[in-house]
Write a protein that binds this DNA or RNA. Structure first.
Length: 588
RNA sequence: GGUCCCGUAGCUCAACCGGAUAGAGCAGCGGAUUUCUAAUCCGCAGGUUGCAGGUUCGAGUCCUGCCGGGAUCGCCA
């Protein structure tokens, strides 16, 4: 039985509007866009609110009430609708028959994993690129947020019917990679027994490079030390990159994150005289007359010291909404990072990804316009890029900011954070905020076992339900816990306001999920789960004051209540798994 | 200077495509335990949604201009 609460009543309203049109009450050909049914904020406004009368008033050249009244009459005849009220400026407030709630719960139990899942994607491919940290060392805590946001968004879209690819762009072509290779080479000499002393400024000092140097010494012996840098660099570089990517993959695994594709920036460069992806991308732009040699005005405000006015290869980004045209080549003739990024996004498009999502850090905010411009340009308007910007995470320890310095290498690593607080709290907290709002992450808070800690609060609600199941299994012989069987319980016995409130919350889930998927906002799921947990805890405590409301009773209602808990636990578990957070059956 | 993001209760934040009297948590005050785990719950109090205009039947949400905070602006990626 498919029963998507709000879609269901949306349909009913649309049908009745059509009937009114057929009867001549409404003019024909009326545009129904914007007509919605929604959960009212205030419970006094019934179960469902509809704005049809107000939205259509102008289009139909009628007073809102003249639309509301006949529509209300028609809706009243629906068997599921108990009462219709015309309120405020013309809202229709629908109160539903009690039997509707039993059907909602039955739908949750019967549909199981597909409850709430909408097929927005229809199997279309979407590429979510996230993390893409420079392969120069272990991931630090700043990378956590983008990692989790991207991963959860990918899961969300997958469940919304998209064919999702999780992708990582390896920035393995820039100057920092040569710095990495030199740093590794130093460790190689160290592994051969040389005294290297202090790590010179400008090289990466981290100990994590020591084993890479040793490995080089093992495979190459002393052979490299006799070579010039130009000779050993191409040998050391790939070894260093592979080692760093191995570390990064391990770090990501700590957060249960796995990418499907790791794409190398270097692979886009010209190889052995053969034009690579970047050259080809520039050709595509040239063919469309979207590049030219020109001069760029210097940035206003502070002029860079080494500014020189010169002709350079520019992309006509302004034609696509950017503020200035953007350079594709540096003064040394090498392509800019942007040029490579254009080629990369073109590559994604050519691999079938018209839908592209990039998750970036806040420091790349100024880059969004040009990248979107580039994707539009290079795909001939067929590709679509959405960029999610993650604001900074402020690490706190008992309310005090944790000091970090990149310069001294004194930063908190992702591994340390996960080690200290666990993957679940890290993931949940990173999602318990809009991506574009700054986030405080307090070590003390996320490990606390109290309502103050949303991770715990939500997981505890799930565990509590399972504690009832354990209890029920002891008390009642042969009690069933599987969802289809529980769906057959007499669900209409659930009439307490706390029980109805919980079902009401479950009814909201499909709508919530769809909104989250459409807007690429996984955090909405996290907030929903918190509200759902609150309803569960609240209902639980009602049973303390009113023993007849306890879930396990010596008569038939127990099954209906177990069904309710089963449904709640299922949605809770389903939402948590979407976020990549465990749904424990017991708190330890 | 340009661009982007943010500004909501004392604090940290929500608000689903523009919906009605802007919601939670913390902190404060007052209550609930012979329990299916009180690791919880219930109540009270707390607001000119930075400011000023505009669009709309209706604006925290959209538009314009200010104010404040952050990020960024060509050879970093």
């Amino acid at each position: 039985m498919i029963f998507n609460f709000f879609n269901h009543f949306d349909e009913i309203v649309k049908v009745e509007l059509q009937n009114l049109t057929d009867e001549g009450v409404l003019p024909p050909g009326l545009d129904l866009s914007g007509v919605t049914v929604e959960p009212p904020r205030d419970a006094a406004h019934g179960d469902i609110a509809c704005n049809a009368a107000m939205v259509l008033a102008k289009r139909a050249s009628m007073a809102p009430r003249d639309i509301a009244a006949p529509l209300a009459e028609r809706l009243k005849s629906n068997a599921d609708i108990f009462e219709v009220e015309i309120a405020g400026p013309g809202f229709l407030n629908l109160k539903l028959e009690a039997s509707v709630w039993a059907r909602v719960l039955a739908a949750v139990l019967n549909q199981g994993d597909s409850y709430g899942a909408v097929d927005l994607g229809r199997g279309e491919k979407v590429n979510v690129e996230f993390v893409s940290a420079n392969p120069t060392g272990p991931m630090h805590v700043g990378h956590c947020r983008g990692a989790v946001v991207g991963d959860a968004l990918a899961s969300l879209l997958a469940r919304a019917g998209y064919d999702v690819t999780r992708e990582y762009y390896i920035n393995d072509a820039g100057a920092q990679i040569d710095v990495l290779a030199r740093s590794v080479f130093l460790r190689y000499r160290q592994a051969l027994g040389e005294e290297i002393g202090e790590i010179p400024a400008g090289l990466y000092p981290g100990d994590y490079l020591v084993p890479v140097g040793k490995a080089l010494a093992q495979t190459h012996g002393e052979a490299l030390s006799a070579m010039d840098e130009a000779e050993w660099l191409p040998i050391v570089r790939p070894v260093a990159i592979d080692a760093m990517m191995a570390i990064i993959r391990t770090d990501l695994a700590r957060l249960h994150i796995r990418h499907d594709v790791f794409f190398s920036e270097r692979s886009l460069m010209d190889q052995d005289g053969q034009p690579g992806g970047i050259s080809k991308a520039i050709e595509v732009l040239e063919a469309a007359d979207l590049v030219y040699e020109g001069r760029l005005p210097p940035p206003k405000g502070q002029l860079p010291e080494d500014w020189e006015d010169r002709e350079q290869l520019l992309f006509r980004a302004t034609q696509f909404g950017d503020d200035v045209d953007r350079p594709l080549r540096k003064s040394d003739g090498a392509h800019t990072y942007f040029a490579a990024d254009i080629a990369y996004h073109l590559d994604k498009f050519q691999r079938g990804f018209a839908n592209q999502i990039d998750v970036w850090g806040a420091d790349h905010g100024g880059y969004v316009k040009r990248m979107k411009a580039a994707v539009t340009a290079i795909t001939g308007g067929k590709g679509q890029l959405d960029v999610k910007i993650c604001q900074l995470v402020r690490l706190l320890r008992a309310g005090e900011p944790v000091k970090m310095s990149k310069r001294t290498g004194d930063f908190v690593t992702l591994a340390e954070v996960v080690e200290e607080v666990g993957a679940d709290p890290v993931r949940f907290m990173m999602l318990y905020r809009k991506n574009d709002a700054p986030l405080d992450f307090d070590f003390a808070k996320v490990t606390e076992q109290s309502r103050d800690n949303p991770v715990f609060y939500v997981q505890y609600a799930h565990a509590r339900i399972h504690s009832v199941f354990r209890q029920a299994a002891e008390v009642i012989d042969g009690v069933a816990f599987d969802m289809p069987q529980l769906a057959g319980a007499e669900l209409s016995r659930l009439t307490d306001k706390g029980e109805i409130q919980l079902i009401r919350r479950l009814a909201l889930y499909p709508r919530l999920f769809e909104g989250a998927a459409r807007n690429h906002e996984a955090h909405r799921v996290a907030f929903y789960l918190y509200d759902l947990a609150a309803d569960i805890h609240s209902l639980w405590t009602r049973g303390k004051e009113l023993p007849q409301l306890r879930f396990i009773q010596p008569y038939e209602i127990t099954h209906a209540r177990l069904a309710l808990l089963r449904g709640a636990a299922h949605v809770l578990g389903s939402g948590l798994s979407l976020l990549g957070v465990a749904a424990p059956e017991e708190m330890v």
